[in-house]
């Protein structure tokens, strides 16, 4: 049985897997990091998005053995050690960008990658197109787009604090 070593949210793990075991199965079932979700079986919904290194990937479409040696970040690993939320998490809450919460971890992980790859800023259209790989059935995306725009301003250093949503 193959063995893989992964660093997940800064912690090293070595686990036994089958060749066919998906990364998301290791995260959810072996490491009990259940914030990463499975919402489809055609690699489209994006509920399973995690980061490998700097890049967002769909953890349902990569074998655990392919991720051997990788540095992986999941939704559980993006807040600061003291519990302070990542600006993207904070923005999703401030702008009511989640309802049932199921797509949310993948959405947040994709959004962070999207913002990091556009350090000079993002238009509304770029945000919408950048979410091609994430499906949300609850929100109509309206508030997700607003949250990402607000978080981008903080992540890109345009603002020191998150812009508040309208009261």
């Amino acid at each position: 049985m193959p063995q893989v070593s992964l660093t997940v949210n800064g912690k090293s793990h070595t686990v036994d897997v089958e060749g066919r075991t998906l990364l998301v199965e290791v995260l959810r079932e072996k490491l009990r990091l259940t914030g990463t979700h499975v919402g489809c079986d055609t690699s489209q919904c994006g509920a399973c998005v995690v980061h490998i290194g700097e890049n967002s990937v769909k953890s349902c479409t990569i074998l655990a053995v392919q991720a051997d040696g990788a540095q992986i970040t999941t939704i559980e690993g993006i807040a600061a050690a003291d519990g302070t939320l990542h600006p993207m998490q904070e923005a999703f809450r401030e702008y009511h960008a989640l309802q049932c919460g199921f797509c949310t971890p993948g959405m947040v992980m994709s959004a962070i990658d999207l913002v990091k790859k556009h350090p000079s800023g993002l238009s509304e259209q770029e945000i919408r197109e950048g979410l091609e790989g994430n499906i949300c059935r609850c929100t109509g995306y309206h508030n997700i787009v607003k949250a990402i725009a607000a978080a981008a301003d903080v992540m890109n250093g345009k603002r020191t604090e998150l812009a508040r949503a309208a009261e």
Binding site: S43, G46, V49, N55, S56, V57, K58, T61, I62, S110, D113, L114, G130, E132, G133, N134
Partner: peptide, 9 residues
Amino acid sequence: IGDTQVRNR
């Protein structure tokens, strides 16, 4: 092509 995650891999 595809989406961000497809393009990343």
